[in-house]
Computed example of a mutant assay.
Amino acid sequence: MPLKNNGAIDYALLTHFDTDHIGQNGKLAIEKVGLDYKLTGITHVGNLLDISTLIDRGYPTYDYPTAAKVTGAHISNYKLYVAARDREGKKNEGFVTGSNTQIKLLKAPGSYPTFEVRNIVGNGKIWTGSGTTSKELVPSTASSSEQLNENRCSCGIRITYGNFDYFSGGDILGVEKAPEWFDIETPVATLLGETDVVVANHHAYSDAMCDTYISQVKAQAYVIPVWDYYHPQPAPLSRMLSQSLYAGERSVFAAGMVDSNRSRLGEDGLKIKPAGHVVTRVYPGGEKFQIFVLNDRNEAYEILYKTGEIKSNN
């Protein structure tokens, strides 16, 4: 399907450098004459679309928590792509935790004064909640074994429009709480408060979507990005649906959900809405929103399911 805007997009944000988020450098990666990198994941997308600004967690040094931690064939391939963009004069940026201007409206911003994209957490830093300042998550006294893994380095952003809030945190984790800074979810939830739509962290795997996170964000809708048979896991799904963590209605959506996993999850699995491409439509002013599930098996994208209009949290 032809894209508008001449096949260009303003921003691409990579939350972190795992293969399922930037692409593998294996046998399915495509070699193209004239390129010193292979086409896979974001490097392939970047050759199909003109990305005006590419943002990742480590540009330009790629050395957090250490340079040795930011290695692998897939990362080397990605770095070659970034270097090519540098040579072409395209804009590459490192994620600036705390900023509310790195990602901004470029078209008629004055018409939407309540719209904001806030960089909440990323690359070992978290917004302080004041201005645009951030602080380190890991104390300087931490040992090498107490440094953050790749998932915990994920970049998370909150999109706000009027009363509406949407959070996407990549693969941040929260179930493991020793040392305390391994739990990224709880301090993030403290900053977020009630959030209308939340993308499930780490695909709602067993090490994410902890109770303290869920009880604070009190989402009206969760969206699970599924690519594995084991997404979501029973425990995080149960927590998302739990009326004891917070009371009230909520919906759970899962893009890419397979029927066999829905059956494995039993009663809770039946509560997940039909699988497909999940679209959140926010209405003018941000006072209400609606969620649609589109058929992602063809380019007609017919509507498979839709909610009613939902009032945004104050």
Rank of each mutant, 00 (worst) to 15 (best):
residue 1 M to S: 13
residue 3 L to I: 10
residue 5 N to W: 14
residue 8 A to N: 15
residue 15 T to I: 02
residue 19 T to M: 07
residue 20 D to A: 03
residue 20 D to M: 04
residue 22 I to H: 02
residue 23 G to R: 15
residue 30 I to V: 10
residue 30 I to K: 14
residue 30 I to W: 09
residue 32 K to R: 14
residue 34 G to L: 05
residue 37 Y to N: 08
residue 38 K to W: 01
residue 40 T to Y: 01
residue 41 G to P: 03
residue 41 G to Y: 11
residue 42 I to S: 04
residue 44 H to P: 09
residue 45 V to C: 05
residue 46 G to L: 09
residue 47 N to Q: 15
residue 49 L to I: 10
residue 49 L to Q: 04
residue 49 L to H: 08
residue 52 S to Q: 14
residue 52 S to I: 02
residue 53 T to F: 01
residue 54 L to R: 08
residue 54 L to S: 04
residue 59 Y to C: 10
residue 67 A to D: 14
residue 68 A to R: 03
residue 71 T to F: 04
residue 73 A to F: 07
residue 79 K to C: 07
residue 82 V to A: 02
residue 82 V to N: 00
residue 82 V to F: 02
residue 88 E to V: 06
residue 89 G to P: 05
residue 93 E to L: 15
residue 93 E to Y: 02
residue 94 G to C: 11
residue 96 V to Q: 12
residue 97 T to N: 12
residue 98 G to R: 00
residue 98 G to N: 06
residue 100 N to Y: 11
residue 105 L to G: 02
residue 107 K to R: 09
residue 110 G to M: 05
residue 111 S to N: 09
residue 112 Y to A: 08
residue 113 P to S: 15
residue 118 R to N: 12
residue 121 V to S: 04
residue 122 G to N: 08
residue 122 G to M: 12
residue 124 G to A: 12
residue 131 G to F: 00
residue 137 L to A: 02
residue 139 P to S: 07
residue 139 P to F: 14
residue 141 T to W: 11
residue 143 S to L: 15
residue 144 S to R: 00
residue 145 S to N: 09
residue 146 E to P: 13
residue 146 E to W: 13
residue 149 N to D: 10
residue 149 N to W: 13
residue 150 E to I: 15
residue 154 S to R: 05
residue 155 C to G: 10
residue 156 G to L: 04
residue 157 I to W: 03
residue 160 T to G: 05
residue 160 T to P: 06
residue 168 S to I: 09
residue 168 S to F: 01
residue 172 I to Q: 04
residue 173 L to I: 00
residue 174 G to S: 06
residue 180 E to D: 15
residue 184 I to K: 10
residue 186 T to R: 00
residue 186 T to M: 07
residue 187 P to F: 08
residue 188 V to H: 03
residue 189 A to F: 03
residue 192 L to M: 05
residue 195 T to F: 02
residue 196 D to Y: 01
residue 196 D to S: 10
residue 200 A to V: 06
residue 200 A to I: 04
residue 202 H to E: 04
residue 207 D to S: 02
residue 214 I to H: 09
residue 216 Q to V: 15
residue 216 Q to F: 14
residue 218 K to V: 12
residue 221 A to T: 01
residue 222 Y to M: 01
residue 223 V to N: 08
residue 224 I to D: 00
residue 224 I to W: 08
residue 225 P to L: 09
residue 229 Y to W: 11
residue 229 Y to N: 15
residue 232 P to C: 10
residue 235 A to N: 13
residue 237 L to N: 00
residue 239 R to T: 05
residue 243 Q to R: 02
residue 244 S to K: 13
residue 247 A to M: 11
residue 249 E to F: 00
residue 249 E to T: 00
residue 252 V to W: 01
residue 254 A to K: 02
residue 255 A to T: 15
residue 255 A to S: 15
residue 257 M to V: 05
residue 258 V to F: 08
residue 259 D to P: 13
residue 261 N to M: 10
residue 261 N to V: 05
residue 266 G to N: 02
residue 267 E to Y: 12
residue 270 L to Y: 11
residue 270 L to C: 03
residue 272 I to M: 11
residue 273 K to W: 06
residue 273 K to D: 04
residue 276 G to V: 05
residue 287 E to W: 03
residue 287 E to N: 15
residue 288 K to T: 10
residue 288 K to P: 03
residue 293 V to G: 03
residue 295 N to Y: 10
residue 297 R to Q: 14
residue 305 Y to T: 01
residue 308 G to A: 12
residue 311 K to Y: 11
residue 311 K to W: 07
